[in-house]
Amino acid sequence: MPFLQRTLPLIIAFVAGALGIITFYVPDMEAFETESATWYRVIFAFSMVLGIHSLLNMHWARIRRQEAGWGFSAVTWIGFGLMLLFALYNNGSGPFAPLDLKRGGMVWMYDHIQVPAGSTMFSLLAFFIASAAYRTFRARTVEAAILLVAAVIVMLGRVPIGAFISEALPTMSQWLMTTPNMAARRGILIGVSLGAVATALRIIFGIERSYLGEESD
């Protein structure tokens, strides 16, 4: 059992990781890379099934126990079930015909429920950002004052009213984006990438084993 639980996953992680690096740098292995990428996509598709099962299972448990807010879980189940039924019905063409994206219950639910609900959730951000900015965005220190001034310039410079107020605002906004912002972002990118390389090497060489439920060395 230790071989199946520990050694075999470590071997798979090492072989898959090493091959991933080698195929990236060796042009002759492009056919292998194509094949392994296809495998990945098949595994990814199965993981979506697993994700759906996990989501529905969690909500079913909430409905069964009638936990607080179980009605929302029921909506999840009903929404999923209806979408699935409409997709399988496919406006009368059946599940094996190309999906009809112009008519039918699935399109109606998508256009009249999913799109407005998603847009509403996203648009609520504007109200909460305004409230949070009013309460917390204070020029308490020099750094905070610089951040505040930069934020005001960018907020004005990115919309036409900025140019209406002053022609300099869009130029200043663009400079903030292309110089200090870009330098900071590049630094973060390099740091994150080095961290990702280090973590990947630790997993490939079996130093990092938290994915097996173990402590790392």
């Binding site: 504007a126 950002i129 305004a130 900015a133 009013y134 309460r135 965005f137 204070r138 020029a139 505040l148 934020a151 005001v152 907020m155 004005l156 990115r158 919309v159 036409p160 009213i161 900025g162």
Partner: peptide, 20 residues
């Protein structure tokens, strides 16, 4: 959409400045 967005930005900036 630039009209509401522009005024929306102005309102938020006003609140930030007023808060300070």
């Amino acid at each position: 959409g630039m009209r509401p967005q522009s005024v929306g930005h102005l309102v938020i900036i006003m609140f930030i400045l007023f808060g300070n």
